[in-house]
């Protein structure tokens, strides 16, 4: 297990939409190079939590520290913060009017201000990292779902984020394409990337994650190493959920 230097600290986080409590006091830590897996029934707040970490949602109260910086501060340069936190979406959200390479290059050029040549070199390197160097010139509609998701991962990686957030990265994929995306995630973990993943891939969680968090109704029910959560869950809710998830 990696040294527990917390790079992500979430402290008593609350999020309300109108009169719905999406998150009710989440406290969580993730160490450098760890993969944290968020599991739980739909509507339990996993995705909301992830979106708060990238400030796509603004929490109602509580704090989130990334590498020691409080990103919930009211006056903060969100664009600078977000560039340090990669996000991968369930629906890929590739830009349909740009090639795979163009998708990766856009933020490099417009956010980091890199030259075209420099951005292109980085893009090709990252596409190679996800095994798609031969698809750099393809447009999203010419790529399979698994390939699109890998391009999306490369797009985030190119900005050299401190953390990568994955919001159900394989849920929109045909079963035979899930493996290629999980393989890339596995490889990222081996490279030492800190990752927070919302996913239903329990087998993958068990094999690859360092830390599993089970959430329900906007709260953490139980958290611990995968062996503990999957094999000896304490809470009744966790047990029922896992039983249903495996069948």
């Amino acid at each position: 297990m990696s040294q527990r230097l917390p790079i992500l600290t979430i402290d008593n986080l609350h999020l309300r939409y109108g009169d719905v409590d999406a998150l009710r006091g989440i406290t969580l830590e993730a160490g450098t190079g760890e993969m944290t897996f968020l599991i739980g029934p739909s509507g339990s707040g996993k995705s909301s939590l992830l979106r708060c970490c990238n400030r796509l949602e603004t929490p109602t109260s509580g704090k989130i520290y990334v590498d020691g910086e409080d990103i919930t501060q009211r006056y903060i340069n969100l664009n600078r913060v977000r560039r340090g936190i990669g996000m991968v979406f369930q629906s890929f959200n590739l830009y349909p009017h740009m090639s795979a390479k163009g998708n990766v290059m856009l933020a490099l050029r417009k956010v980091l201000g890199k030259s075209r040549a420099e951005a292109e070199a980085i893009a090709l390197k990252q596409l190679e990292r996800v095994g798609l160097s031969d698809r750099a010139g393809h447009y999203p509609n010419q790529l399979s779902g698994g390939q699109q998701q890998r391009v999306a991962i490369a797009r985030s990686l190119a900005l050299e984020p401190k953390i990568m957030l994955f919001d159900e990265p394989t849920s929109a994929l045909d079963p035979e394409l899930v493996g290629e995306v999980l393989k890339v995630m596995r490889q990222l973990k081996d490279d030492g990337m800190t990752m927070v993943v919302v996913s239903h891939e329990m087998r993958f969680a068990k094999a690859a994650s360092d830390h599993v968090v089970f959430m329900a109704e906007g709260q953490i029910v139980e958290a611990g190493p995968p062996a503990q959560i999957f094999d000896e869950p304490v809470a009744e809710r966790t047990r029922t959920f896992l039983q249903e998830a495996y069948h």
């Binding site: 977000r82 959200n93 933020a107």
Partner: peptide
């Protein structure tokens, strides 16, 4: 599309 772009810092 907005979220993806904003998440990369645009």
């Amino acid at each position: 599309q907005w979220q993806a772009a904003r998440s990369t810092g645009l």
